[in-house]
Simulated assay, not measured.
Amino acid sequence: MRRRRGDPEAEVSEEIVEKGDIYFAYRPRIEEDKAEDLGDIQRFYMVMKPERQARLRVAVLGRKRLPEARDHERIWGFIEAIKSGPAVEDEFREHHYATRTRGERTLPPVRPAGEGVYALIKRGRNLHLSYELELPRRPGEVQEELNIERQAAYILSIKNPEAGSPPGAGLSEREEAHYPKPVERQFRGRRFASEDPHLLDYEGAEFILIGARVDPERAYGVDIETEHETARNADIFRQLKMSPREHPIGPLIKGEWQ
């Protein structure tokens, strides 16, 4: 138990409910050889791999960056896929497809932009996502524009698909998560739930990230153990099966746009 800051009598419980590896990556727009700023990005990915699990959660963030922790900014996202490493690489590599009006089009390969470790912390009634970077060792312009801090934390709330969305917002009914009835009951009729991270283990699961902390280790008293990573032993290539030959690594190693 920890005492709530500013109130010595009140206490709030904290429990780490999940730990693992976290990766950030982006894909430039169609037919773009490289990205030079946020406007050149088609999608921004956040991938979570829980400890002792083979599955990976591939999430897409709507504003193509992480929320501002200091401003308690809210950013919507969704789980695009639950896959193994080889299946993630199949999705992240370069793709070619034909169109009727423009001929063959090229979807460039995804670029890795960050690697680290994370913890999901149940704090009171909220679920917090806290992470710390291992790569790049010195964040650069890519991390600054994508708002990938050295360490940060967010309140993570998972949307009840039965609650509906405003017109033009969120995923369609066909795309959103379809939870089994026993899992769906965890929402208890609420619009959002934040107790069980396994609600994220379904494709189409929608969530809101709310900026919470820029110094989570101090705020939660949680020490997330990082490791010394280099381009040669980076987990993003081992676990996601991404080949450095096919995916430009400048953003991950030097923080430079590619």
Score class of each variant (00 low, 15 high):
Phe44Lys: 03
Trp257Thr: 04
Thr230Asn: 10
Arg150Trp: 09
Arg232Asn: 15
Glu14His: 08
Glu68Arg: 12
Arg93Met: 12
Pro112Val: 01
Phe24Glu: 07
Arg213Glu: 15
Glu132Asp: 05
Arg29Glu: 07
Glu68His: 11
Ala177Cys: 10
Gly221His: 10
Ser157Ile: 02
Met242His: 07
Arg57Thr: 05
Arg137Met: 11
Val60Ile: 14
Phe207Glu: 10
Glu227Leu: 15
Glu14Tyr: 06
Val60Lys: 00
Ala234Phe: 02
Glu144Arg: 13
Tyr220Met: 09
Pro244Lys: 03
Arg52Gly: 06
Ala234Lys: 00
Pro244Ser: 07
Leu66Ser: 11
Pro216Asn: 11
Ile41His: 02
Ile208Glu: 12
Leu199Thr: 01
Gly189Thr: 10
Val88Lys: 02
Pro251Ser: 05
Glu203Ser: 09
Pro244Arg: 05
Glu256Ile: 14
Glu32Phe: 15
Leu66Tyr: 05
Gly204Ile: 03
Asp33Ile: 08
Ala87Cys: 08
Pro182Lys: 02
Glu176Val: 07
Val183Pro: 01
Lys159Asp: 08
Gln42Ala: 01
Pro109Lys: 00
Arg111Asn: 11
Arg150Ser: 11
Lys241Phe: 10
Gly20Trp: 03
Gly62Glu: 13
His128Asp: 14
Gln151Cys: 02
Val117Ile: 14
Lys83Pro: 00
Asp215Met: 13
Gly168Asn: 04
Glu104Lys: 07
Pro139Phe: 14
Ser172Lys: 11
Pro28Arg: 04
Pro251Tyr: 11
Val47Phe: 00
Leu127Glu: 10
Gly103Arg: 03
Phe237Gly: 06
Arg190His: 10
His95Asn: 05
Val58Gln: 01
Glu145Ser: 13
Val17Pro: 02
Glu144Gln: 15
Leu199Phe: 05
Arg29Ser: 00
Arg245His: 15
Glu175Ala: 14
Gln42Lys: 02
Ile30Asn: 01
Met48Glu: 11
Glu162Leu: 12
Arg123Leu: 09
His247Pro: 08
Asn233His: 13
Pro86Ser: 13
Glu229Met: 09
Ile121Trp: 05
Glu51Ser: 11
Gly85Gln: 03
Asp90Thr: 05
